[in-house]
Design a protein around this nucleic acid. Structure first.
Length: 114
DNA sequence: CATCTGACGACCG
DNA sequence: GCGGTCGCCAGAT
């Protein structure tokens, strides 16, 4: 599975903005919904400039575990996003994948048979 | 091939 | 608002 479309979209999230796994999944029509978005992020290659920390759970909650949670919080705050009780203020920072036909994820029609 | 394991979220009590 | 269950499905073991 190529999570490329996911990475591309995440890469477009502006500084100081966040997106939720659910919104991400919905925007790309990921099969399996939000969890798929989560899997994609878990597979995020580091060192590629992908702002993974801008993806949070519903209500802006940071869902990942330590030690990443602390790191994510720190990164978000450094961008001017206020985190209260492990949550980002979505009202102010939720980002919408505006215009430009968001790359739509497509399920492979069929899998390679063994 | 069988099972387990989640960077989720909706639902219910 | 909080904790438990369930559907979902790709990777890991």
């Amino acid at each position: 599975m190529s999570w490329d479309p996911v990475f591309r979209l995440v890469q477009r999230i502006p500084r100081g903005r966040v997106l939720t796994y659910g919104a991400l999944a919905k925007a790309l029509r990921l099969p399996g919904g939000a969890r798929s978005a989560g899997r994609a992020m878990a597979a995020t290659p580091s060192g590629k400039g992908i702002p993974w920390h801008r993806v949070v759970g519903e209500h802006g909650k940071i869902l990942i575990r330590e030690p990443y949670a602390s790191l994510q919080r720190r990164l978000l705050e450094s961008e001017g996003i206020t985190i209260i009780e492990s949550r980002a203020d979505l009202k102010r920072h939720l980002w919408k994948p505006s215009k430009k036909s968001p790359p739509k994820y497509r399920t492979p029609k069929k899998r390679i048979q063994r």
